[in-house]
Structures are given as C-alpha cells and as structure tokens.
Design a protein around this nucleic acid. Structure first.
Lengths: 221, 221
DNA sequence: CTGCACTGCGATCAGTGTTCACACTTTGAC
DNA sequence: GTCAAAGTGTGAACACTGATCGCAGTGCAG
C-alpha cells in the first residue's frame, strides 16, 4: 500500500531521474550537474539531496537502469531474430551503444573514481544480465551439438556457478564469456571513437565480424 | 639549438607533466586538479596557463605519452618473447592496463566530453601505434602460411591503406584488427572491474584466452 | 487538534577551471 | 650600456560545481 506521500515521493524521484537522463544524453556523465537537473524540474539544488544522498547515488541509479535497458534491448533483438539470434543480439548491443553513447560510457567507460560496486550491489547484478542475454542462442547451439569445444581456464569456480545457473557445462559458459568479451571489444572501441581512422561506415565491419564469430564458435544455426 | 629560455621552459613543462602524471596515478583523470598540480611544483595555479592553454591540453599530452608507453611495452614484450610473440604482446597489453589503470582509463575510457581528437592529432597517431604493435607476429604467421583466412568486410578502404603500410594483404590486416579488438575487449572489462564477479584471479582466464586466440587465428608458431 | 516527520529553500562553504591586470626577469637590438 | 620588447609568474577575481545546515512550511497519524 502506498500512501499519498510515498506516491508523491516516487513521482518526484522519477522526475529527477528522467531529467538527469535527459541531461546525460547531451553532455555526458561528467557534465551532469545537479544544479542544472534541479532547475530543469523547478527545484532548488539543495532539494535534490532529499532524494539522493549525493551525485554518485543518482549516477548509480542511472547506471542500473542503463544496464537493464541494454539487456532488454539485446534480449528483445535476440528473441525477434529471424536468422542467427546470436548475431542479432550482438548487433543490438552495438546499436544501443551507438545510439546512447553517453549512457554506454556510464556503464562501461571510466569507472567512478575509486569506488567499485559491491558484489551484492544493484549495478553488478544488472550488469550480469547483459552478459546473460547472450547465453540462450549459445545454449541452443550446445543442445544442437554444433558448438566448438572451448578450453576452460583453471581455478575459476565463478564460471562454474555461472554455468550451473543456466544448467550448462562450464565449457559452454566459457564460450559465452568469450563471445561477450569479443563483441564488447569491438563495440567499445567504436563507440568511444577509437575506430574513427577506419573511415566512413564501420557497420559492415561489425556485421562481418559478428557473423564470423558466430560461425567460428559454432553458434550459427 | 636551444636557448637558455627554451631549455628552462622545456624543463618546467616536463616538471608539470610529471607532477600531473603522479596525481593521475592516484585519483584518476577526473580528480586531476590543476591547482593541486600547481602547488605540488610550487607554482601559482594561473602560472600553468603559460604552458598549457587549458586542462584538456595537459590531459592530451598525458594521453599521447600513455599511448606511446603502452605501445612500447607491448613491442618490447613481443620482441623479447621466447615462445608465442603474439601471446606475449597480448599479455603485456593486459599487464600494462592493470598496472596503470588510471592511465589506461584515460586512453580507452570515457572520452573527454564532446571533443574528439582530429585526424591528424598526436593522440590518434599514437593510438594507432598500439594496434600496430600486434602486427609483426601476425605478419610472420602469414609469411609462414599458417594464418587462418579472414573475411574482409566490404567498403573499408582504410583497412587497405593500413595493410599497405605493412606490405600485407587486406585480409591479414583484417585479422590483426580482429585480434586487437578481441584482446581489448577482455582487458578493458577486467581493468574497469566488470569481471569482479569472476572472483579471485582472472589471470589464467586471460592467458588461456590469448593462447586460444593465437591458435584459432593461426598465429601461434 | 496536536505533534511530528517530511519536504523544500536560501545561505553558505570549499573547491574547481579560467581570466585578467599587474610585477618581475630575461633577452636582443641599438 | 640602454632600453623597449617579450616572456614568466602572481594574486585577485569570476562563474561554476557538489555539498551542508538551519529554518520555514506541509501532510499525516495519533
């Protein structure tokens, strides 16, 4: 049950977050000013501190939402894919990054000063959802038996538990992990402008790359 | 010939850069304060502006140096390698990133607000040196004929010119590019703490991964 | 109705990058 | 040797940032 006060608070909180997101989308996380957010919703700068203890808390909220949005986008593209669901997911990952470069930078760019999200924090669990979104097509390939066997690095029990969560052998989890980090490498470099020297349109590069990856790992149907 | 004044200026400039680098190594780029740098070398904050027009210029200098240092480290490890030079280079890339996380973040993390380095800028050419450091072992494998053929994405003339610079066919350049982005994906995720959930020691994961990459691409001798 | 927690505001503080007018020193030409 | 020009450094100031604090109002529960 939500009292009137709780509803209002929720609403204001959402309004703050929405305004912050709008400011983030143009200008980036570094330029996100609490004062600007405050005035854009007709509030005093000090008032924001009733809702967020500090700037990092607001950013953490945006990060959590960003991970969820990215994971959702990837999962949706994967499920709606006609051909290779894995390639579709990878392309969606890239598309989202290019369409929301500042949010992507917040997720995977330079981490906040020293701080690191605690194991149980909302951001880390949301982060894992993104990686997990790539698993189903890989699991399907494993069940089909087309998957190329992958070497499992020793002393990595975390990979085992990750695999167990999907009811898959560790080798398949290792392959999913490999696939995700490979995709991320290309996407992060392109999104942050380190591939500008490649010239005009890197889209065919990405597509060719993802298709080859799917084929080489034995994911492609 | 350097006049006395030019020498002094050079010296002061280097001192500023060294102090800035020291501050960068603890605290990160976002926390790098011109005032702190100024007092640490016994200068007025305003005095720095005789040497750098603004904060970004100082950061640009640090970025250029960082790319050069990383490229040097990778090249050195590659040349000193006993076994697989490509794996050695990849491991050096990872080592440098983990040893200098803040500098690595400056190079490959969230880009400075809107600004993007001009085509002819010092940072972009220094950046390309890093990718180029991975080429020789791949070129050697090509000459040996062990290289796995790579699909060349269409409409990417830049890759052709890059290949021509090393006197290699475009397919080999495409493979080198693939290799670099793959390595980067794993390293950037680990350096920025997104692989913390993997637990204790991700080193064997990286080594296994790089060896497999070298083998699968046909680079390994 | 009363008391209390909640909400928001203005003032304020410390810190940031940056600019400006001003002093001081070094340099090079006469 | 003289002297103007160029280079170098300073202190004060500006506009901005995140953050804190005490003080007013307001909604809610008893």
């Amino acid at each position: 049950m939500a009292t009137r006060r709780e509803r209002l608070r929720e609403q204001t909180s959402a309004e703050i977050k929405a305004a912050a997101l709008a400011h983030l989308r143009e200008g980036g996380g570094a330029a996100l000013s609490l004062r600007a957010v405050a005035v854009s919703i007709g509030m005093s700068p000090a008032g924001l501190y009733r809702y967020y203890p500090n700037r990092d808390a607001l950013l953490t909220d945006l990060i959590t939402d960003g991970f969820a949005a990215l994971a959702h986008e990837v999962a949706q593209a994967r499920d709606a894919a006609q051909g290779d669901a894995f390639v579709a997911a990878a392309l969606a990952y890239r598309q989202w990054a290019l369409a929301h470069p500042h949010e992507f930078a917040l997720l995977y760019g330079t981490p906040i000063p020293d701080y690191q999200a605690p194991e149980a924090g909302p951001t880390s669990s949301a982060s894992r959802q993104v990686g997990a979104a790539f698993v189903p097509p890989i699991a399907a390939a494993w069940h089909r038996g087309t998957l190329k066997p992958q070497e499992v690095p020793p002393h990595l029990t975390a990979l085992n538990t990750f695999a167990a969560a999907f009811d898959l052998p560790p080798a398949v989890a290792a392959l999913a992990f490999t696939a995700w980090t490979t995709i991320h490498g290309l996407v992060v470099l392109e999104t942050f402008g380190h591939l500008a020297w490649l010239g005009e349109n890197p889209a065919p590069l990405a597509e060719t790359r993802f298709r080859a990856l799917s084929r080489d790992l034995g994911i492609a149907p």
